[in-house]
Design a protein around this nucleic acid. Structure first.
Lengths: 74, 74
DNA sequence: CACTGAAGTATAGAAAACTTGACATGACGT
DNA sequence: ACGTCATGTCAAGTTTTCTATACTTCAGTG
């Protein structure tokens, strides 16, 4: 079973803010599969740092604008 | 074999800027093993986003201050 | 209604990240 | 010379991330 990640994200909001960009389009821009975007958007696991940087770059925002790390605790 | 990552970091410099903190101490603070810190410091692979956030938090700096993502290119 | 595009689920398997433990090196103090 | 501490290496194993296929649901359109 996957463990749900602590990191949250604003990918869905950013996609819509960028001309209704679809998950498939974002996946292509980032260079991953559609399933990966779905899983991350749903917080099923947190992406690699590389992927996080690539996503932020697609939306032209800083990394902290896409991903949030809560104070702590499992 | 791990593939060398595109992401670079300033962990070593930050460790020394924080009272000569050792790799073992940083590992303990972050909650990973010493080997993991060594590998990341050497750029053998890039950490998970969660770990990246935790490291930045230890040094009390923004994530982009610890990790840099170059323009592109594989 | 049939057709299409976007989102989601599921499963198996590859690849990358991370752990554990053992051993090697160089710098430092006694 | 000896012990210790910080760094680094190696190899085998586990967990998490990511891919690839295939199938489902729902909103919109002709």
């Amino acid at each position: 079973m996957g463990k749900p990640t602590k990191v949250t994200n604003s990918i869905r909001a950013l996609r819509f803010a960028h001309g209704e960009m679809t998950q498939a389009e974002l996946a292509k821009h980032v260079g991953v599969t559609r399933q990966t975007i779905i899983a991350i958007e749903q917080g099923r696991y947190s992406p690699s740092l590389e992927m996080a940087f690539q996503i932020a770059r697609v939306f032209k925002v800083p990394l902290d604008d896409v991903f949030q790390y809560p104070d702590a605790e499992d």
